[in-house]
Design a protein around this nucleic acid. Structure first.
Length: 366
DNA sequence: CAGTCGTGGTG
DNA sequence: TCACCAAGACT
């Protein structure tokens, strides 16, 4: 421990003083670390922590998760996005119970063979749970290292990435990977953030970007394509007080989530015409719009979506329950409004449900 | 390897 | 209001 570089010592000392209480830091249990890391992928800490606590409360062990239903895992995931993570989590848990004695693998190759475990997550779990000297590079580490070493290549370029991973590996002090990896991430989160607090930083004297006065220009972001505007329309079909929902396919956007049927508004078509057409194409049902419920704006990945939502009814009288011919879903279901809470919806449709619940116009079926 | 995969916080 | 982006993985 005597041969720490100033950089290593400063980060470790800073972490000693400033480490936050986070869910997996009580025991560094491999299962808890793994769950936490997957939830935190592309997710901000403050938001992710709440999901971590709920998830670990419901599924405290590898075995309990392996026995879970996908529907329940998805429900816990609702609102987090990137829903393939949830299904991969379940698949990996079952794989670990079946093949690895219910524990997270202790070597990188085996760990990375698990669905949803990439370079970052493998290093994060192995270093934090087992104190193995495996590096990690996330957005926090990218900020810290790109500023300390003035990385001028675009941060996502293969050049920059190979430098970052090599550097991250070389910086790990012998026997202290658990502390150091967390230290550099926590530092990147609390001090060397998007808007860095250089006034509070104990590393300014070793920071090339600070010396050059270009901290705000590091890291160099990847050029980003502008979000494409998309207009969609969805319909809440009410029949005898019940609402029709369908389950999305296992691939593509929102895999395995439930939704109100609908689709993209084509050129020369109104949103209302779109919904009617979509119900015919997706379900072979002849419906008509009763009224417009709301317009909801939300974005996902490369799109910014304007969602027009309509209340629908069947065009013709129906004695019983018409059978849908599913063309865009794996399952269909008639449910009461109260039962909608048990299903997992994309954020935009969840917003729609909340709006309906609060609108007195719809008290008759809510 | 560049595109896909969400969402809410933030300035 | 809006662009940027976060403890990335997969194809």
């Amino acid at each position: 421990m005597s041969d720490l570089t100033p950089l290593q010592k400063t980060l470790l000392d800073w972490f000693e003083e400033n480490r936050r209480d986070l869910p997996w830091r009580k025991r560094y249990d491999p299962y808890e670390v793994w769950i936490s890391e997957v939830i935190l992928q592309q997710t901000q800490m403050d938001r992710g922590v709440q999901y971590i606590e709920r998830f670990l409360e419901r599924f405290p062990t590898m075995e309990s998760l392996a026995e879970a239903d996908e529907e329940e895992v998805l429900k816990l995931w609702e609102g987090l996005g990137y829903y393939a993570r949830a299904r991969n989590l379940l698949l990996a848990a079952r794989q670990m119970v079946a093949e690895h004695g219910g524990t997270f693998p202790e070597d990188v190759q085996t760990a990375r063979a698990l669905p949803g475990v990439g370079r970052y997550t493998a290093g994060a779990v192995l270093s934090q749970a087992y104190n193995q000297e495996e590096p990690i590079v996330d957005a926090n580490v990218e900020r810290v290292l790109s500023r300390l070493f003035d990385v001028d290549a675009p941060i996502k370029s293969s050049q920059a990435q190979s430098f970052l991973w090599e550097t991250a590996r070389s910086l790990i002090p012998k026997g202290r990977a658990r502390e150091f990896n967390q230290a550099i991430m926590e530092f990147g989160n609390l001090i060397c953030g998007k808007k860095p607090s250089c006034m509070l930083c104990p590393l300014t004297e070793q920071c090339e970007a600070h010396y050059l006065g270009i901290v705000d220009h590091r890291p160099v972001p990847a050029e980003r394509r502008p979000a494409v505007p998309v207009e969609v329309a969805s319909g809440v079909l009410v029949h005898k007080g019940y609402i029709f929902i369908q389950k999305r396919p296992e691939d593509g956007v929102w895999p395995g989530l439930w939704e109100f049927p609908g689709g993209n508004v084509e050129k020369g078509e109104t949103p209302a015409e779109c919904v009617v057409r979509e119900f015919m194409e997706e379900l072979e049902w002849d419906v008509e719009t009763a009224e417009k419920i709301a317009i909801i704006r939300h974005g996902y990945t490369t799109f910014k979506v304007t969602l027009s939502a309509f209340l629908l009814r069947f065009k013709d009288e129906h004695e019983g329950w018409p059978e849908p011919v599913l063309h865009a879903a794996t399952e269909g279901q008639w449910v009461s409004f109260a039962e909608l809470g048990k299903y997992t919806f994309p954020a935009g449709h969840r917003k729609l449900i909340d709006m309906i619940a609060r609108d007195m116009r719809y008290a008759w079926f809510v």
